Computed example of a mutant assay.
Amino acid sequence: MPERTIDFGKYGAQGIKGYEAVARQLDALADFIASPVTTRRGLMARLHYLTRTPHARAAAYDAGLTVTDRTLKAWLEGTRNPTRQNLARIEAAYRTVRRHNVARYLLARLNRTGRGTRVEIHPLNQSGVRPSYQRVVEFRTLNIRHWEAIIDAWSTGDDRALDDAWIEQIVDLGSQWGQYEYVTNIGFAA
């Protein structure tokens, strides 16, 4: 059984870790607000999302948005604008709360009552690798039936746990799973 890649890109291969591609796809499925936080519309949408209920306010506070109610009210009314650091905190809190809120829904959709979801794995890019060093890697598909560990790690933002959960799933590819630790893209839909 192959071990994890230690010196990726040594011969010119390009790609990203598989768990990063999975996180990117899950973020796309989470359907975040499209307007950037730096625009008035994007800021208001995020603030309304984070403050519409007491539960949402508590979750935003836990996620790092620790401003006073007075400051929050001034931002919502438009009399004051958040600093660059506060904009970053608002964005981080919004993404954390949104991931937590959609995690259960995504888990149900991806597990599909035990049927799982088909995942397309696009191999790493070897166009910069000399032919004598190139591997034979091809497009692969994999049906993942248990998304619990992946969704849990993604919703909490734990990259190490997400990497471990992803590796645990691609081991099902057999002895070639090490070739798919780094990929160009991973696709699935919920």
Rank of each mutant, 00 (worst) to 15 (best):
T68K: 01
S132K: 14
G64W: 05
T68L: 02
N81Q: 10
A60M: 11
L110G: 00
E3K: 03
G128C: 10
Q25A: 14
P123Y: 08
L50T: 09
H55W: 00
V136T: 15
S132E: 15
Y182H: 11
E3G: 09
F139H: 14
D158S: 09
T156D: 04
G78T: 04
R57C: 09
I186E: 00
E91W: 04
Y11L: 08
A190R: 00
N125V: 12
M44Q: 15
Q169L: 01
Y61M: 08
D69V: 05
P82K: 05
G116W: 03
I144T: 08
P54K: 05
A28C: 06
H48V: 12
V137A: 14
D164W: 00
N143T: 15
H122I: 14
R40H: 10
R112E: 11
G174M: 09
I170E: 02
V183Q: 02
Q176R: 11
V129E: 09
R109V: 05
N101R: 04
S132C: 11
R130N: 13
S127Y: 10
M1T: 12
N81W: 01
I90K: 03
R41T: 15
L142Y: 01
T83I: 03
E181F: 06
L173A: 09
F32H: 09
G12T: 12
Y105L: 13
R80T: 10
Y61E: 12
T83W: 01
I186D: 00
H100Y: 00
W166G: 01
A23W: 07
R4G: 11
T53I: 10
A108M: 08
M1G: 13
Q169G: 00
Q179S: 03
V129L: 09
L26S: 05
D158A: 08
V37W: 00
G78C: 07
H55A: 11
R109E: 13
G114T: 10
R46Q: 12
R40E: 14
A34V: 15
L76E: 03
G18D: 11
V102F: 05
R160M: 13
R109K: 13
R95I: 12
